[in-house]
Design a binder for these strands. Structure first.
Length: 272
DNA sequence: AACCAGGTCTCGA
DNA sequence: TCGAGACCTGGT
């Protein structure tokens, strides 16, 4: 299947989604409750899934005009280098509920632990698929046996996670409306919920609600921006600077910078 | 064995 | 509007 210019390794391991695993050269994950297995050989990607081609192309954002996106953020010298270095890293379009619930768990934890927490949640509440893995649970599945949330190792995030499931189940958040809304209205709509601050809201906005100008700032991005551009300060100040500097696809630049910082960390830990 | 993690919340200035 | 402290817990 043709998913456009994409590198699965970069795209699925960069920390935007937490449910993809690579084994024996194949990536397997679950999208919209369906198992997806992908194997990339150069430009060829072999796909095994019950998902329709339309759904898969939607998930991989094949509708994006990637050329003009790269042209735009590539105006920055540093990012231009990263575009070459990590060619084929793409932003995904994830399910808003799964994305927001996952990033509520992602606060103040490292990626391996986030993956573990999400996996625990899926095994505890989610539907078991024929292949043996579990789908990400619906809000209702979580509410029905919320007393078991304590066994998932979520720490202080547990109460927020369950409460958010309740809010979503009660229809207190309209993701489709947030998609159509302006970036700022989208963030304002997300940030009302306990456990969603600036950073999580930006992650949800870019990874699931089509607001590619969202620029999530974690500690590593903060450091990188300070080093590369000598810009620092409050979240609001830095993120506004980033949208100004990188333009309407600022979030795409953010993901390349984040991945580069991640790669540096990985090589440091190998050296130890 | 400490250290730190894709932050958020609360509170005071 | 901003900065400082506390915070569950498990990888590394």
């Amino acid at each position: 299947m043709d998913l456009g210019p994409i590198d699965l390794d970069h795209t699925l391991s960069c920390g935007q989604a937490f449910r993809w695993k690579k084994r024996d050269g194949r990536w397997s994950g679950i999208v919209a409750g369906e198992e997806v297995v992908l194997e990339q050989d150069g430009d060829e990607i072999d796909v095994q899934t019950g998902l329709s081609e339309r759904e898969l192309r939607d998930y991989f954002r094949c509708d994006d005009d990637i050329t003009s996106i790269f042209k735009e953020i590539g105006k920055d010298r540093y990012v231009a280098g990263l575009l070459r270095k990590y060619q084929g890293l793409r932003i995904l379009r994830q399910d808003p509920w799964e994305c927001s619930a996952s990033f509520i768990l992602a606060t103040y934890a490292n990626v391996p632990r986030i993956i573990q927490m999400v996996e625990n949640v899926c095994r505890t509440f989610g539907t078991r698929l024929p292949e043996g893995s579990y789908a990400f649970p619906t809000p209702e599945q979580i509410i029905k046996k919320s007393d078991e949330a304590g066994t998932c190792g979520l720490g202080y995030r547990c109460a927020r996670f369950v409460q958010f499931a309740r809010s979503v189940h009660l229809g207190e958040i309209d993701f489709n409306m947030l998609k159509r809304a302006s970036y700022q209205d989208c963030v304002d709509g997300l940030i009302r919920f306990d456990g969603i601050g600036n950073k999580v809201a930006d992650c949800v906005a870019i990874f699931s609600l089509d607001h590619l100008e969202a620029f999530p700032i974690d500690v590593r991005i903060g450091r990188a921006i300070e080093q590369q551009y000598e810009v620092q300060g409050s979240y609001r100040k830095v993120s506004e600077w980033a949208r100004q500097h990188f333009g309407r696809y600022a979030g795409y630049a953010q993901e390349y910078i984040y991945y580069d910082q991640d790669a540096r960390n990985r090589s440091v830990s190998r050296r130890r």
